[in-house]
Computed example of a mutant assay.
Amino acid sequence: MPLSSPDRPRAGPADHAACRAAIRGGSRSFYAASWLLPRAVRRDAYGLYAFCRLSDDAVDGPRARADAVERLRLRLAAACAGRPFDDPADRALAEVLDRHGIPPALPAALLDGLAWDAAGRRYRDLSDLVAYASRVAGAVGAMMTLVMGERSPEALARACDLGIAMQFTNIARDVGEDARAGRLYLPEAWLREAGLDPDAFLARPAPSPALAAVLTRLLRAADLLYARSEAGIALLPAPCRPAVRAARLIYAEIGRAVERNGHDSVTSRARVAGARKGRLLARAAATPSRRAAGGPALPEAAFLVEAVAAHPFAPPPPDPAWWDLGHKAVRLLDLIEVLRERESLGDAAPS
């Protein structure tokens, strides 16, 4: 695929529309939460997500190639150099990386995690699983925090907590789907402690009380990280907090759906209905932010926070002043659009 011209092309309206379509089709939960973001942040979040979605599909989709990760690394290097490949997601990514001073180490960590997927890597214990989740989800949380304009180590650490918790929830939900694809993410030590042989389970996945015990343990670990992440939400710009809290609530609710299914993630897939998502969005918008005691990043995720600290960045100019009526009009239209989208969520298919 040819590279674009070397004059740092910017993503156009068609590129942004393609990125928005990617998130709407790829993750209804993330898409629902994103509607609480300010318009400019939402647009850049879509651009970031589109490249993440493209990368995941390239490694794990029906047309996956053996050299998918190496090709993605070439595309990332081109985007970091301001000469993205001729694709909407690549152009959007190049713009987002440049505008928000995102160090290349963060998207590179995501690709490292996808390389572990491609290699069929398995995880001995919780620390190994945290290292994986830090790459495929913690890195995305850190990048989103930079897109929102916050760069403090504490906020980044809590964003990594949230991303890792979400990944744990995904793993608990997708056990059967992953096993049928030849992948096992549950800590093997936990499986053995519950009386399950990892190889035997992978060959013939089935629900059982032993599996339920492992999933209960994983969801408990996720809940601890969801609780830790709350301290970081209060550090974000006020207009961004409801969206992040909504994502936290919706993903945690997927865990509750796994529990309601009797921890059977082999023969069923936990879902959150559109009406329930709508109520969680309303709750997220109405919940005040509370600053709680934080703490350092998890050791397995600390390299992400350190990469940001080592990457100098001059922040962009401030938003238009309050008397900028043109800006106010755009914000009003944005709020109307959000309300319409919320109304549609009540009729949406569950996801």
Rank of each mutant, 00 (worst) to 15 (best):
R121W: 09
T287P: 06
E188M: 09
S55I: 01
L339H: 07
M166G: 14
P242Q: 05
C19Q: 05
A50F: 10
R217V: 06
E193D: 15
L196M: 14
A246N: 09
D15M: 02
R124G: 02
V140Y: 06
G101A: 03
A133M: 11
A321K: 01
G274V: 02
Y46F: 15
R10D: 11
A40P: 10
M1L: 11
Y185M: 06
G120C: 05
C240P: 01
L219V: 06
P103L: 09
G182S: 07
A155S: 14
R173V: 11
F85Q: 09
V69N: 05
T145L: 02
R245L: 13
E253Y: 00
A213P: 07
L162A: 08
L225Y: 11
S265C: 10
R269L: 13
G12M: 01
R10A: 14
A137F: 05
R220T: 15
A293V: 11
R271Q: 14
G12R: 07
A172Q: 06
A11C: 05
V266K: 09
M1F: 14
D319R: 15
E193I: 00
R204A: 15
G12Q: 12
A68M: 10
R276K: 13
I171A: 12
A131V: 03
A33I: 10
D125H: 12
A189V: 12
D67W: 02
A45C: 12
A66K: 10
L298T: 04
K328T: 09
L129K: 07
A275E: 13
L332Y: 01
D125N: 15
G232C: 11
V96D: 07
L129M: 09
A11R: 01
L111M: 09
V330Y: 00
A275N: 05
A133V: 01
R241F: 03
H327P: 01
A302H: 08
A321V: 13
I171F: 15
A77V: 10
L215V: 10
I250D: 06
D199I: 04
V41A: 14
D90H: 11
A321W: 09
P242I: 09
P13S: 12
L249N: 12
T267Q: 04
A64E: 08
A64F: 02
A45I: 14
A179M: 00
P207C: 04
R173W: 10
